[in-house]
Amino acid sequence: MNRPTQRTARVAWDGAIHTATPLPAAAGEDDTARIRLADGRVIDGHQAVWLPPFEVGTIIALGLNYADHVKELARELTVTAKDEPLVFLKGPGSLIGHRGHTRRPAGVAFMHYECELAVVIGRTARRVPPEHALAHVAGYTVCNDYAVRDYLENWYRPNLRVKNRDGGTVLGPWFVPASEVPDPQALTLRTRVNGRITQQGRTADMVHGVAELIAYLSGFMTLQPGDVILTGTPDGVVDVQAGDTVRCEIDGIGALDNTLLGDAAFGLADSPATA
């Protein structure tokens, strides 16, 4: 995976997939409002279909990787912050891009966002010590990894029905090269639901930091270019409903927008059986 010299996106427009870069935003706009395609054309970012901003390999996700989130769920857990990382894999069908739509099943009681720093591997990593781990990072992006809490085993252990839902993992909008992020443990995260801040945290509060996670994972599996590590979320998750717009922000990385839609938008009956 080649390291780009600036932040990039992948979009579908005019019958093709393009690499795009941001243009300076006008007052009141964000950096996805106008974009420049690799062939030089400038388009309105709202006209494009935004894809995950890099070609994704294996999707590796962390559960309970912020101390405050562990505390938030303390009454429901049988694990502690001292345990080994809680890791699980996700399939490619779970991924969508910036401004995409995620289904909120009518029959569930509690579905929540998870604002996460996504770490993209750029060099093959096998048994990498922590002090060398960040040299294997190509860059970063923002992730919103939805979960339906109804289906959690013991209310904490991620399983397929909770964390591998079609369109439930949002990535983007930008792939930010590692050279622009000198310290991945010094970033601020926040989530806004319909414009209201509902979640805030700092990557400094991860139980297992980025370098430690790469060292841990590469100790038993080979990490390849394009693999992505979703590093967990801080406390502050709330139930979201169809019609809500969720924005996950990481300072220096980007702002990722997503809208929840009900079953009817996906051609499904409003029934718990379709959850």
Rank of each mutant, 00 (worst) to 15 (best):
A20M: 07
A25V: 02
A25Y: 06
A27I: 13
V11Y: 13
V42P: 11
R34C: 02
A27S: 14
Q6V: 12
T8H: 06
V11G: 10
Q6R: 15
E29Q: 13
T8G: 05
A9K: 07
I35Q: 02
A38P: 01
E29H: 10
R10Y: 10
A9W: 11
G40R: 09
D31T: 03
H18C: 03
G45M: 04
D39E: 12
I35P: 01
T8Q: 15
A33Q: 03
D39F: 14
R34V: 03
V42Y: 08
T19N: 04
D39K: 14
T21Y: 08
R10P: 10
R34M: 10
G40T: 04
R10K: 14
P22I: 06
D31H: 08
T8V: 15
A33C: 01
W13K: 00
D30M: 08
R41S: 08
V11I: 15
H18W: 15
D39V: 12
G45N: 06
A9F: 11
G15V: 06
D30L: 04
G15R: 08
A20G: 12
A25H: 09
D39C: 13
T19H: 10
P22V: 10
T21C: 00
G15Q: 08
G15P: 09
P22Y: 11
V11D: 09
W13G: 09
R10L: 14
V11L: 14
A20V: 12
A27C: 00
A27Y: 04
Q6W: 13
D44T: 06
L23S: 00
T21S: 10
G45E: 02
R41I: 05
E29F: 08
G28P: 11
R7P: 14
T19A: 04
R10T: 03
V11C: 08
L23W: 04
A12L: 08
A26E: 13
A25C: 09
I35A: 03
D44P: 04
G45I: 00
T32L: 01
D31F: 02
L23P: 00
A27G: 06
P24Y: 07
P24G: 01
L23N: 09
A12H: 14
L37Q: 05
L37C: 02
G40A: 09
R36V: 05
R41W: 00
R7M: 13
D31M: 00
R34L: 07
T19E: 11
P24K: 02
A26S: 12
D14P: 04
G45F: 07
T19Q: 09
D30P: 10
D39T: 14
R7I: 06
G28K: 01
A33I: 02
D31E: 11
T8R: 15
R41F: 03
T19R: 10
A38W: 05
E29Y: 05
R41E: 09
R7L: 11
R7Y: 06
R36L: 00
